[in-house]
Computed example of a mutant assay.
Amino acid sequence: MSLVIDPAAIASIQTVELPIPTLTPSSDPTHVQIMCGYDRAENEVQAAAAIDIDDAFRQLLGEHYDTLARPTSKPAKYQPSPDSIALLEQAFLAGVGQPVRDDFSHALQRWHPTEDSDAEAFYKHFRALSVLLTQPESVAEAMRVQPVRAGESIKVVRDRQSMRDSRA
């Protein structure tokens, strides 16, 4: 089964910018502060685990450790802690089933618009896109009020299809 749509079947196009600024839920300034605390605690746990792993490799490799263990030059990208994700899900995804929450959160954790994204940027993005799951009627209405247009490429495809049909 193919999911490819024949362009000739597309009659019109409507687009809506995401996120939809008018639908974004209001922010709570304490959320970012709480997230930073959760993230800091998670980073401390990960740092302690990394030291343990580092010590194990140092013992295993002995004198070769310093030669083989080269630091990476890329800075780490912001990664929200599981507690930060849970906070955002509770605040902005009320009524959304857990499997959908998990998929949504997992997808957004890989979102990095810039190298220096931080908790605040992630919070804004999560909050803004949450309406896609919590306000589907409002999102559909935002789409309905967008102009309907036939793209030039659609017109070309329809013309070609008409020519094929007239030959048959």
Rank of each mutant, 00 (worst) to 15 (best):
A91W: 06
R110G: 00
K74N: 06
Y38F: 15
P82H: 12
E44D: 03
A48G: 02
E17K: 11
S138C: 01
A107N: 10
D66K: 14
R160M: 13
H31T: 13
I85V: 15
K155T: 14
Q33A: 15
D6C: 08
L23C: 03
G151S: 14
P136R: 09
E141Y: 09
P136H: 11
P113L: 10
V4N: 01
D165I: 05
V131D: 11
P75R: 12
E115N: 09
V96G: 00
Y123I: 03
T24A: 09
H31W: 09
D165F: 05
P113E: 01
T67W: 11
L93P: 06
L68Y: 09
V4Q: 04
Q146A: 15
F92S: 02
G62I: 09
D66Q: 14
D116M: 00
S81M: 12
D6Y: 04
Q135I: 04
E141G: 02
A107C: 07
Y123M: 01
T134C: 07
H106W: 03
E141Q: 14
K155I: 11
H112M: 01
K74R: 11
A94W: 08
R164I: 10
A56T: 03
T30D: 15
L68S: 03
R144P: 01
V45A: 01
Q46Y: 05
M35E: 05
L23E: 02
G151K: 07
P136E: 07
H125L: 07
R101W: 04
D102N: 13
K155A: 10
D102F: 05
E17N: 05
I5S: 07
S12D: 02
A47P: 01
A49W: 07
S12F: 13
A8P: 05
D116I: 00
D52E: 06
P147E: 14
Q98V: 14
D159F: 02
A150Q: 13
R160T: 10
V4P: 01
P113F: 08
P82R: 12
M35H: 05
D159E: 15
D102Q: 13
R158C: 12
D83V: 04
S162K: 10
P80L: 07
G151D: 15
H64M: 11
M163I: 08
T72G: 12
R149L: 15
D116A: 02
E115V: 01
E89A: 11
D116V: 00
M143C: 08
Q135A: 15
Q135E: 12
V148L: 02
V96L: 11
Q14N: 05
K74I: 05
P7I: 09
Y123H: 13
W111R: 10
P19H: 09
